[in-house]
Each structure stands twice: as C-alpha cells, then as structure tokens.
Computed example of a mutant assay.
Amino acid sequence: MLALLALALHGLLYLSLKTAGDLNIRATAMAKRLLPVVALVTLVSVPATVIARPVHLSAVRSIGLCGWLPRWWWSV
C-alpha cells in the first residue's frame, strides 16, 4: 500500500513539474491531498514493520541507515 501511494505521489509531482495548464493544476491539487496520506501511512507502517519483523531492524543496524547513519549511531 505504501509503495503504491508513494509511486502515485511521485507521478503526480512529476506531472505537476512537467506540464502546464489544467493538467498541472489538477496534478498539483491531487499531490497536495495525497502527501499527508503518504506521510501518515509511512509513520504507521515503519514502526509496524519493526514490531512485526524485528530482524529487518537488525539488518539496518549492521549496515547503517542507507549509508549515511554510521553503525556506531545504533550502538548508543
């Protein structure tokens, strides 16, 4: 669900940047409505994933978060 919503938001933002006229207006309006939904689903799904599958968090701890949070951060 999160991936579908994020992909839809991505497409809407792309349309709002690359088009003009009525399509731009509609894409921008829909993106403004979809952004809080994507944020809420993200805030709910990330902790739910950690609770349901804690092994995924240990993988993040071992390699660092996307390479920019070093491993020592997780050992604090």
Rank of each mutant, 00 (worst) to 15 (best):
M1K: 11
L2E: 10
L2S: 11
L4N: 12
L5A: 15
L5G: 12
A6E: 15
A6C: 10
A6G: 11
L7W: 13
A8L: 09
A8Y: 03
A8W: 02
L9R: 05
L9N: 02
G11P: 12
G11L: 14
L12P: 01
L12A: 06
L13K: 10
L13P: 01
Y14G: 03
L15Y: 01
S16H: 02
S16W: 01
L17D: 13
K18D: 04
K18T: 06
T19P: 00
T19I: 01
T19F: 00
T19Y: 00
T19H: 01
A20H: 07
A20R: 08
G21K: 00
D22L: 13
N24M: 15
N24A: 15
N24G: 13
I25Q: 02
I25A: 07
I25S: 03
I25K: 04
I25N: 01
R26L: 09
A27F: 05
A27G: 03
A27K: 00
A27R: 01
T28L: 07
T28K: 04
A29L: 04
A29D: 07
M30N: 00
M30Q: 02
K32E: 11
K32V: 06
K32Y: 05
R33D: 13
R33S: 13
R33Y: 12
L34Q: 05
L34A: 01
V37K: 14
V38I: 09
V38F: 08
A39W: 03
A39H: 03
A39P: 00
A39M: 07
T42D: 12
T42P: 04
L43M: 08
L43Y: 05
L43P: 00
V44A: 14
V44Y: 12
S45Q: 12
S45P: 01
V46D: 02
V46R: 00
V46C: 05
V46M: 05
V46A: 09
V46I: 14
P47I: 09
P47S: 08
P47H: 08
A48T: 06
T49R: 14
V50C: 13
I51G: 05
I51D: 09
I51C: 11
A52W: 15
P54N: 10
P54D: 07
V55F: 13
V55I: 08
V55P: 00
V55W: 13
V55H: 09
V55Q: 10
H56Y: 15
H56F: 15
L57E: 03
L57D: 04
S58I: 06
S58Q: 14
S58L: 14
A59Q: 12
V60T: 07
R61H: 08
R61M: 11
S62K: 10
I63K: 14
G64Q: 03
G64R: 04
G64E: 03
L65P: 04
C66K: 09
C66P: 00
W68G: 05
L69S: 10
L69H: 07
L69Q: 09
P70K: 03
P70L: 04
P70W: 02
R71V: 15
R71E: 12
W72T: 10
W74I: 00
W74F: 15
S75C: 06
S75H: 10
S75K: 13
S75D: 10
V76L: 08
V76I: 06
V76H: 08
